[in-house]
Design a protein around this nucleic acid. Structure first.
Lengths: 149, 149
DNA sequence: GCCAAGTATATGAGAGTTCAAGTAAATTGA
DNA sequence: TCAATTTACTTGAACTCTCATATACTTGGC
């Protein structure tokens, strides 16, 4: 009953796996080397830096940074140890926690951002034509729509 | 001096990160749930199952399964504990090890494959048009060419 | 007002990954 | 021929992630 992948699909699938893994590895290596953080932490810091007053509820932060709640909890605990994030109790819902980006934390992403963007360009955008970038955007948006939530 | 991402590039980049992460999470969840193995192990077993006599040098296996050598060593150690893989010493180069897929190991991927393929279709191919699949293939091939080796 | 059910988050254990270092064998080249 | 280098692989420690469970608070009926 299984509809196996035909030769074209196999090739596409393996190209997809390899390419996305290469991009992710390149990102992680660059960030780890130059900024001593994994990409997941970078995404958390970026999400916080874009929030009003650089503060956000944990659950919303998890959604924006594409992290599970548990992963976020652990990550924020580590970021707190580094002094990059602080946790405030939420006044209107006392179960809640609010993650706040500290000045040191802001300095950390500000320092990391240029190298990261350069790596994003190097590993993805530079090789593609404008048409390919547009196509990729639509493909990814489609995949998001089918898998999200 | 940094060339920041413009709004379109930002959107594409975030769609890319989200979409690829969603696909990877879906794969991992399905395999973990139905076959009790992470995707990385699945790729190792598939690579072995396609090799002549289902055996391959560790370093070649690492390349085919897109794994670092260290990761492969650890993974094969675990797969050996499950009785899915065996390690033979390599006669013509005594530094070398040859990973061999056991019958149990072959049975394990044979059992896992249909569910995995279904998930691959569900999370990637089903949502895309044939043109999009072709475009994705080329994009990924291009990325591989720029990042590989 | 009270209790059951739901929500927000944390925590701990187990498993996989990475990085650096270690071992052993092959190759180079003087 | 033998020391120096390189190659193949393993190992251990540190770290991150996942999954299941625990804790604390809130909310919706009755």
């Amino acid at each position: 009953m299984t509809r196996w992948l035909d030769a074209d699909e196999q090739r596409t699938w393996r190209n997809f796996l390899t390419a996305t893994q290469l991009v992710n590895e390149a990102l992680d290596r660059q960030l780890q080397r130059d900024a001593a953080m994994p990409h997941a932490y970078y995404m958390i810091l970026v999400a916080l830096s874009e929030a009003p007053e650089r503060r956000m509820r944990m659950s919303e932060l998890a959604a924006r940074a594409q992290s599970s709640q548990s992963r976020l909890s652990h990550a924020v605990a580590r970021l707190e140890e580094r002094g990059w994030v602080r946790r405030d109790r939420c006044p209107e819902d006392r179960r809640g926690n609010i993650a706040v980006l500290t000045d040191d934390g802001f300095a950390a992403i500000a320092a990391a951002a240029p190298g990261h963007v350069a790596e994003v360009r190097r590993s993805l955008f530079d090789a593609l034509t404008p048409d390919q970038v547009r196509a990729l955007d639509e493909i990814c948006a489609t995949v998001r729509n089918t898998l999200e939530r």
